[in-house]
């Protein structure tokens, strides 16, 4: 191992300053932290907590119910990404509904739905459009493609969210977090400059980094260094993928088709300006995305809401590994490949 890496690992392992709490916003970072065994490489005084950065985990039950209803409707087919399949709705997940005959198709790209819709004009193809800044441009491209091909039997049922309002919500409402490891893929779109205002306002380090173990260690090292000096700056350590100003073309695509509105975050509640909805001009493609302002009441013992803001670690939830496991998930954080509970379960039990 190179000297620089050894030095960083040694310093983080022997860190003996004040206890610090860092939030990795993105679920892919949570997975990468386990994959590289990062916790076993750093001092227990540096606590890593998982944030709300898994789009599946923050999607309300009511959205799943709407998806299921479409899939059960005559002459309708629902297209979804794989990790939505097992998220429990009020009565059914898409997976159990499919078992009962509902028409649910796994998509690898939302463009799959356009292709299918073009071939079968008598059926309505509904896309369960879930995702953050990273995925929203793909839905915008899907609409562009549908328009180009004159496909009209396509609907988007959206539960699209942007991460910045949620990070700001956490800064306002969760006081114990000292710094943020910022989502790498989201930052590719938004650019790292977007964190300057947050760092300025909350005087905390916001560090953009990649998904290799080294990237994460470098981010922790940068954060600990800043905290030691009493600094709180935005910093981009993922320069090979993230530009200061991000991907303007992708953002323009988003802006062409979508407009911001409130969004319901499972476990957090409503956050103004954090949702993305189809603009007025494209309403014919909207599958009824508004009105998801109420969420099903989760069992009191389910602590998904506290898990996604990092107030508790998954293993502190009384249902973790008991009433809630990857094979029989109760909360969405246990279902998704990016969900904190699922990642903890697969890597620690």
């Amino acid at each position: 191992m190179e000297a620089a890496k050894i030095k960083i690992i040694n310093e983080l392992k022997n860190y003996d300053g004040p206890k610090v709490k860092l939030m990795e916003v993105c679920g892919t970072h949570t997975a990468a932290i386990f994959k590289s065994g990062i916790r076993s490489l750093i001092s227990p005084k540096i606590k890593l907590i998982s944030g709300p950065g898994c789009p599946v985990c923050v999607t309300p039950t009511a959205f799943i119910d709407k998806c299921v209803a479409y899939a059960q409707k005559d002459r309708h087919v629902l297209y979804t990404f794989g990790d939505m399949m097992k998220v429990p709705g009020s009565n059914n997940s898409l997976s159990t509904a499919k078992g009962d005959g509902a028409k649910v198709e796994l998509m690898f790209s939302p463009l799959d739905a356009v292709e299918a819709a073009a071939k079968d004009p008598d059926t309505t193809y509904v896309i369960a459009a879930v995702g953050f800044e990273t995925t929203i441009p793909a839905y915008a491209l899907t609409l562009a493609e549908a328009q180009l091909k004159g496909v009209r039997n396509l609907l988007l049922l959206t539960a699209l969210k942007t991460t910045f309002p949620a990070i700001e919500w956490i800064c306002e409402n969760e006081k114990g977090i000292d710094a943020f490891i910022c989502p790498g893929h989201v930052s590719v779109i938004t650019g790292s400059d977007a964190y300057n205002a947050l760092a300025e306002k909350y005087q905390k380090p916001f560090v953009v980094t990649g998904f290799e173990g080294e990237h994460i260690l470098a981010a922790i090292y940068e954060i600990v260094g800043q905290l030691k000096k009493g600094e709180g700056k935005a910093k981009n350590l993922y320069r090979n993928a993230v530009r200061d100003r991000g991907n303007a073309k992708a953002r323009a695509l988003i802006e062409r088709y979508f407009t911001a509105g409130y969004a319901m975050w499972r476990g957090l509640g409503e956050i103004p300006g954090s949702g993305m909805y189809l603009k007025e001009a494209y309403q014919e493609y909207d599958g009824g995305s508004y009105g998801l302002d109420k969420d099903a009441v989760l069992a009191k013992s389910c602590r998904c809401g506290e898990v996604i803001v990092g107030r508790v670690n998954p293993c502190e939830c009384p249902m973790f590994g008991k009433g809630c496991t990857p094979t029989k998930p109760y909360g969405p954080c246990m279902v998704s490949a990016e969900g904190a509970c699922g990642i903890w379960y697969r890597n620690t039990i």
Binding site: I38, S40, F81, V130, T135, P326, R346, N347, I349
Partner: peptide, 16 residues
């Protein structure tokens, strides 16, 4: 570092 390698749960589904 060290990590646990568990069994596969469910299917390995492509994610969002």
């Amino acid at each position: 570092g060290k990590r646990v390698v568990d069994m596969l749960y469910g299917e390995g589904l492509p994610r969002i």
